[in-house]
Structures are given as structure tokens and as C-alpha cells.
């Protein structure tokens, strides 16, 4: 029998702990495929976050470091600057990147650190049990806003790509989703671009990926896909916000 598809060698062959319908597994695989295709596995160092993806240090088959909540971009900076030959990526969730680690996110972009950030936006805290995230939608219930996010009390969701697009140092910003097959393909392209930019020394790249968290949204995996498309996308439009080719250009 001919083998038409296999697990990328950049993923360790173990069972992941993610819930049914979760987007992390998909994105992990995409990153691993990109590492394989670019032939960079042995010189890549990944930074695992705090949150559900904390165990990604076990899953990726490259050197990994797990750091404090929100500090991924600082850790990645330390690795990249001291080992410029390494390819360094930071894998972060929304609470990690846009709440506790906002300063690190903004300043690594401002410095245009030559790193790649993969940002999972699922509008909720996963590991800690469904608390309100900086990206939680208006009206969306969470365990710390059970009646739904109220702007008067909880403020407004943060649009990371739009925010960072104001920074000259942010060279590549793209928002994609993994809620559809087409979205998955586009996401892989965007991830590849982010890694390629780093290989070519183009500076800070970030891919914001709209992803599913059916468990904490209290929906089925299928409804989760729908939630991304129908609820998240209107607030978080997909597309390229900045790219090195259109220097300074904003979509």
C-alpha cells in the first residue's frame, strides 16, 4: 500500500491531550509540517506558553522551552539574539499574548525581533476553566462574566493584528482561521510565511489564528466551527495586515 500522508517528523508520535474539537492540534500539525518542509527542525527552538498548550513542549519534535505566562516573546528574544542561527517561534494563547504578556508582544514587535509568533485566539481562557479573555466577544459568557461580556464592566475585546499593525517593527501580520478546510490551508501558508520571513531575516512576524474551544464555549465541536465563522469573524476579519512586501502597508 502506498503511504500518502504521515505524521510530520517535527511532531513527536504521542497522543495529545487536547479536547475534541479543539484547534491546537490542527495548528501544531501545521507548524510541524512547515518545519519539515523548510528543513529547519534541528535548528528550531519553540517557546511553549502557559495554558492548554503548555504541553506542546512534549509534542513538537524540536528543542523546546516552557516559560512564564505571557513572556514568550521575551524568551524568544533571548534565544534568537544569542543564537541567531536558530529559528525561534513562540506559541501563545489570547490570555497569554494579549493580556498578561501584552507588553512583551508589543515591544518584541516594536524591536522587530526576528522571531515568529503563532497566536491562538479562541476568545476564552482554556486551561484555567473558561474565564474571560481579552479577546472574549461582547455578550459572550465566560466563568468570570457569566452573564456575558459587558463593555461597561469588562471593556472591549482587543484586536491584536489591528493594534500591532500600527508598529513599524511588525513586519508580517496575518489573521487566519482553522474552522474550515480552506482556512486550514491558508493558515499553513501564513505560518510558513512567518517562518520564511525569519529565515530571510525580515523581522517580527505574527499569525493570529481564530481557533475553537468547544469545551469552554459549552458547545459541540461542530457548533464550535460555526461559532468561529459566525461570531468571531465579524469582529476579527481575516487577512494580511502587514507584510514585508508592502512595507508599511495596512490592509
Amino acid at each position: 500500500m502506498e503511504l500518502v500522508n504521515k505524521k510530520p517528523s517535527s511532531l513527536v508520535d504521542i497522543k495529545m491531550h487536547y479536547c475534541p474539537g479543539c484547534g491546537h492540534g490542527i495548528v501544531h500539525r501545521l507548524i510541524a509540517e512547515v518545519m519539515d518542509e523548510l528543513g529547519i527542525r534541528e535548528r528550531t527552538v519553540g517557546v511553549a506558553p502557559v495554558g492548554c498548550a503548555v504541553f506542546s513542549d512534549d509534542y513538537f519534535n524540536c528543542d523546546m522551552i516552557q516559560g512564564p505566562h505571557g513572556r514568550g516573546p521575551a524568551i524568544a528574544t533571548g534565544i534568537k539574539r544569542s543564537q541567531p542561527g536558530c529559528i525561534v517561534f513562540s506559541y501563545q494563547g489570547d490570555g497569554d499574548l494579549a493580556s498578561i504578556g501584552m507588553a512583551e508582544t508589543v515591544h518584541s514587535a516594536a524591536r522587530s525581533e526576528n522571531i515568529s509568533i503563532i497566536f491562538i485566539n479562541n476568545a476564552i481562557y482554556g486551561m484555567t476553566g473558561g474565564q474571560m479573555a481579552p479577546t472574549t466577544l461582547i455578550g459572550q459568557p465566560a466563568t468570570t462574566c457569566p452573564k456575558g461580556r459587558d463593555p461597561k464592566v469588562n471593556g472591549y475585546p482587543i484586536k491584536v493584528c489591528e493594534l500591532l499593525s500600527q508598529l513599524d517593527g511588525a513586519r508580517f501580520l496575518e489573521r487566519t482561521s482553522v474552522s474550515t478546510a480552506q482556512g486550514v490551508i491558508k493558515t499553513k501558508k501564513a505560518i510558513k510565511k512567518a517562518f520564511q520571513n525569519q529565515i530571510e531575516g525580515k523581522g517580527f512576524s505574527l499569525v493570529e489564528i481564530l481557533s475553537m474551544c468547544p469545551t469552554n464555549w459549552g458547545v459541540t465541536p461542530l457548533q464550535g466551527l460555526k461559532f468561529v465563522d459566525e461570531k468571531m469573524m465579524p469582529l476579527y476579519p481575516l487577512g494580511v495586515f502587514r507584510s514585508p512586501e508592502q512595507e508599511g502597508g495596512q490592509k
Binding site: 522551552i65 521575551a74 524568551i75 539574539r81 512583551e104 515591544h107
Partner: peptide, 24 residues
């Protein structure tokens, strides 16, 4: 070598965490 003025002490120590992890 490398010098970085970090955006905060928090970030500074985490840069150290990353750099030290590469064995320097």
C-alpha cells in the same frame, strides 16, 4: 555580545531565561 534594554524587568529576566537556556 548582545545588550538589550528591555521594556520591563519582567521582560529582561525572561530574555535571560531564554538566552541562558542556550548555554551561554
Amino acid at each position: 555580545g548582545t545588550f538589550i534594554q528591555a521594556e520591563s524587568e519582567v521582560s529582561a529576566i525572561n530574555m535571560i531565561y531564554g538566552a541562558a537556556a542556550t548555554g551561554i
